[in-house]
Simulated assay, not measured.
Amino acid sequence: MDEKLSFSKYQGAGNDFILVDNRTGFFDRSDVNLVKRLCDRRFGIGADGLMLLQDIKNFDFEMVYFNADGREGTMCGNGGRCIVAFARDLGIIAERTAFLAVDGRHEAKIDEELVDLGMIDVNGTARDGAAYVIDTGSPHYIHFVQNLDNLPVYEEGYKIRNNDKYRKEGINVNFVQQESDGGYFVRTFERGVENETLACGTGATAAAMAAAVEYSLEGSLEIPIRVLGGQLYISFNRTGEQFTDVRLKGPAQFVFKGKI
């Protein structure tokens, strides 16, 4: 790409993303090196991921998500909230939207900088020893711990993500600590970024579901999830192993725009 690329930068609870309006289809989504360079924090713009907003029939837009390693990724919850804010700022939507992502249809509503995003239903959880394994649009490993502030998340997450079971496909590794207010503190090692991030929306969602199972919470629930970059709220209806009407709520904020 020789010409200049216009972009916008958004963040959701510290999870930061490059947003590109690709409704004309000019961006080469097969160019792994370009995406990787744009996401690089020293040689590019710097971000946990990059998203293309594209035209698609029967939806307001399509969300195409790339990890910082340049490869197309699975669903990103905080990215989904940020692209809703981007679509609003572009004038594509007003307060409500329905869009298509890699894991299917999502609907959302936005009020100022707060985005309430509908996530996919989850039917069943798995276990890996003491940990939970839950797919909320992306695969997550959830482990309950104590003293999370002092846990070496990069080292422990790296080991799990690269063990024999998960090395090929990768997995996001979440460490969760129960807090006194009924909420939970979550720190996440993300595949694709291959490092700890300040937030992970699908990870927070998976952690809330794991907490419901771990602590025998049933019915209509809203679970506060504190992450390094801020506060998220996860709500759903739980009946046994079924999680329906799943919502991810939190901030999505414009940071800056430019050309590169």
Rank of each mutant, 00 (worst) to 15 (best):
Y215A: 06
L232P: 05
L228R: 13
C39F: 09
T197R: 06
V193I: 11
R127M: 09
G118C: 13
G73R: 11
G70C: 00
Q178V: 11
R187P: 00
G79T: 03
G229L: 13
V176A: 05
K259N: 10
M119L: 05
A211E: 03
L117G: 05
D111F: 10
R191D: 04
R226I: 07
D55Q: 12
P139K: 08
T136D: 01
S8A: 15
F254Q: 09
F185L: 08
V122W: 06
G14Y: 02
I83H: 02
D60M: 07
I223H: 03
S220T: 09
L114W: 10
L100V: 02
L5Y: 04
G25H: 10
L5V: 08
V84W: 08
G12L: 11
E155W: 03
G80I: 03
N237T: 15
V227G: 13
N172C: 08
I45F: 09
G203C: 07
F61S: 02
N195A: 15
I225K: 03
M63N: 08
H106G: 02
N172Q: 09
D89N: 15
F17K: 01
F66D: 01
T74I: 00
K36L: 06
P251L: 13
L232T: 10
I134K: 01
D48F: 09
E112W: 10
N22I: 05
A85W: 00
R96T: 08
E179G: 07
E156V: 06
V246S: 14
K249G: 04
I260R: 11
N67P: 10
Q178G: 07
D2Q: 12
E72W: 00
I93G: 11
V145I: 14
L52Y: 05
E169A: 14
K109M: 14
N174W: 01
I92K: 00
